[in-house]
Design a binder for these strands. Structure first.
Length: 603
RNA sequence: GGCCCGGUAGUUCAAUGGAUAGAAUAGAAGUUUCCUAAACUUUAGAUACAAGUUCGAUUCUUGUCCGGGCUACCA
């Protein structure tokens, strides 16, 4: 049980005993005490003051006394300033946590949770992944990891958008312009190779429409009559009809793309338990349409198209099936939601999808509810904001899209330069170095994207590379490496020394040990790990953990700058600090792992 | 037009309705004899505007201004 929980429950208890009033623990407001005041945690009394018709200071004194008497193991002193009851937590409490956490297998405590599906990534097979996909992937992977770590059974899925007119565009362009080139023949990564033909299509299309415009056609006509567009539309028809040579080309080109995606996913540490392909799921919606019609949730118009009326819910009428019987985007998603539930029977299904689709996701859930689907309430849209450039949104038309592979490569180069300049790893082998560069590069990139609240849009400036200083992944990695360095040296020393005290797993006695402010501050933070992770899980928000781990690293840096570890004042202090270093390193490592970030032993 | 989201130091990000709004970076000044200066210490700098609710508002409500998104028989 965390300190804050204990304080809340103790305070609720004290209130009952002192005033004879029962109050729900969750209503007790507990904050961390601001650093300029004495104390560790603060109970805010204004709310109580009103209820009890007593001055907050008086209540503070009475409660403070009571808490101290009843919980002498937890509190050592209190003070009241205005309406704030500041409580000082006993050193022993934290020392106990240090001992318990150090010897426990798992820092996190949890009960058996739910079955959760997390969907993320959703790439199109006509172009390579970009920075937006990275935010999506990192978020999805991290949320899945956090949910696992808090006791849930998690299945990670991707939906691959592998069919439709946009896919045909790159296929047509390849047929016309490639002269039989392949990724193998050109040495190009498959997804980039195909993406180039998508761009090539657009160039040609633009050329053709402007020719038609010049010939006197209206813009609309020109766009419709451009020969390459007509061919593409025909190809889509052929694809749907199952024309063998079209399917063959489609399979071939998609396989190139998948090979490229695999490389990228592997490099960035993203993976899935199952991928769904739209080419296989786009017909699933039909079943839903039938259900909807039979339940009178959907209705058919004269032309045969099928609709749902959501105006009572403040939304529009929404088409769910075209008059030609083909399904639209929302219908496919309805079908897929159903299919996923049949396969996994999830309690919760989390969609990591950009916030431009807020409306779509709202409609999706609403329709499922109206259809009476029992899983509808478990659907949760983890809506995240765009990654923008300082000039605004990335636009493929203007060529400002930041490519994922390029960015990762750039980060690796930068990590390499920095490492050569700074590091103490001259004895690393080539492989170890390569590994280290990847670790640092991805640490910087992932942390950069995950430290921000998902729902907020964020800015990436390609002119300034992602930093390795300050509130960054490498800063935290560096702290970990230094801690490990201290711990290595400690082991070295103790093995050299003849005295070799048997306390290789450090046991601070607790008796007579007085924690210094920075030691206590660090421990206070470490003790919050559990609470923070559960908070992150509840809010599907990895940034909570990012902020926390940074605070730990920062405090730790001050701590070991200020206090000597290996040459501490006494042997007892030394053991305490070593154990503190060890637990800090573990907490950092586990916290970062929840973000998908590795921490090196040395850097 | 309608609906949704946002506006915090020069810049990028924090802050369950609580105390003097935190960090990072850029700026100024310092620190290398436990471990590794990718660090530490000090310093200066911000809640778009106006009302309202409250003991107390960056946070809740309303209005104004400014940005962004959605509003397809595209996905």
């Amino acid at each position: 049980m965390s300190v804050t929980t204990k304080i809340k429950s103790a305070a609720a208890n004290a209130i009952t005993k002192t005033y004879g009033i029962t109050i729900d623990e969750s209503l007790v407001a507990v904050n961390e005490t601001k650093s300029e005041f004495d104390g560790d945690y603060t109970v805010v009394l204004f709310g109580l003051s009103k209820q009890f018709k007593k001055g907050p200071e008086e209540i503070g004194k009475e409660l403070g006394e009571k808490l101290l008497v009843d919980n002498s193991d937890l509190f050592t002193s209190y003070n009241v300033i205005k309406g704030f009851l500041n409580l000082t937590i006993a050193d022993e409490y934290y020392l106990n946590y240090l001992t318990a956490a150090s010897s426990s297998q798992n820092l996190l405590q949890f009960e058996k949770g739910k079955k959760v599906m997390v969907e993320y990534s959703s790439p199109n097979t006509n172009k390579p992944l970009h920075l937006g996909h990275l935010r999506n992937n990192f978020l999805g992977w991290s949320v899945a990891q956090i949910l696992k770590a808090t006791g849930n059974e998690v299945r990670k899925t991707a939906i691959v958008n592998d069919r439709g007119i946009h896919i045909c565009k790159s296929m047509i362009a390849w047929q016309k312009f490639a002269n039989g080139d392949t990724p193998e023949s050109t040495g190009k990564k498959g997804d980039h190779f195909v993406g180039d033909y998508y761009v090539r299509f657009n160039d040609e299309y633009k050329k053709q429409t402007s020719e038609l415009l010049a010939a006197g056609q209206t813009k609309e006509d020109a766009e419709r009559h451009a020969p390459i567009m007509k061919e593409t539309q025909q190809m889509l028809v052929d694809w749907e009809a199952g024309k063998p040579e079209v399917l063959e080309l489609w399979r071939t080109m998609n396989s190139w793309v998948y090979a490229g995606f695999d490389t990228t996913y592997k490099r960035i540490g993203s993976d899935f338990d199952k991928s769904y392909y739209e080419s296989q799921t786009y017909l699933l919606g039909k079943k839903i349409v039938d259900i909807g019609l039979s339940k009178n949730v959907f209705y058919k118009k004269d032309d045969g198209s099928v609709w749902i009326n959501l105006t009572d819910e403040g939304l529009d009428e929404k088409l769910v099936m075209r008059r030609d019987g083909t399904s639209v985007y929302i219908t496919q998603d309805l079908g897929l939601a159903n299919q996923k539930h049949e396969e996994f029977a999830y309690d919760d299904s989390i969609y990591v999808v950009g916030d431009e689709q807020n409306y779509h996701m709202k409609v999706l859930q609403l329709i499922l509810k109206k259809l009476g689907m029992p899983y509808a309430n478990g659907i949760h849209h983890l809506s995240y904001g765009m990654v923008e450039l300082p000039t605004g949104r990335m636009k493929s038309r203007e060529g400002t899209v930041v490519d994922a592979d390029d960015l990762v490569e750039e980060m690796v180069q930068q990590a390499k330069e920095k490492t050569i300049e700074k590091s103490k790893v001259d004895d690393f082998t080539g492989d170890e170095l390569t590994q280290l560069y990847e670790t640092i590069a991805l640490g910087a990139l992932k942390f950069f994207l995950l430290k921000v609240d998902p729902k907020k849009k964020m800015v990436f400036n390609p002119e300034e590379s992602i930093d390795f200083h300050g509130f960054t992944g490498p800063f935290i990695q560096y702290t970990h490496a230094r801690l490990k360095s201290i711990l290595r040296k400690a082991v070295e020393e103790s093995s050299k020394s003849l005295v070799q005290s048997s306390n290789s797993h450090l046991e601070p006695s607790g008796e007579g040990l007085k924690l210094l402010p920075l030691e206590k501050e660090l421990l206070r933070l470490l003790e919050q790990f559990n609470t923070v992770v559960h908070e992150a899980a509840k809010g599907f928000n990895p940034s909570t953990i990012g902020n926390y781990v940074y605070a730990v690293a920062k405090t730790c840096n001050s701590f070991y700058t200020e206090h000597k570890v290996l040459t501490a004042e006494t042997e007892e202090k030394k053991q305490l600090r070593l154990q503190l270093c060890k637990l800090t390193a573990t907490t950092i490592k586990e916290g970062m792992a929840l973000l998908g970030i590795k921490v090196p032993e040395r850097m």
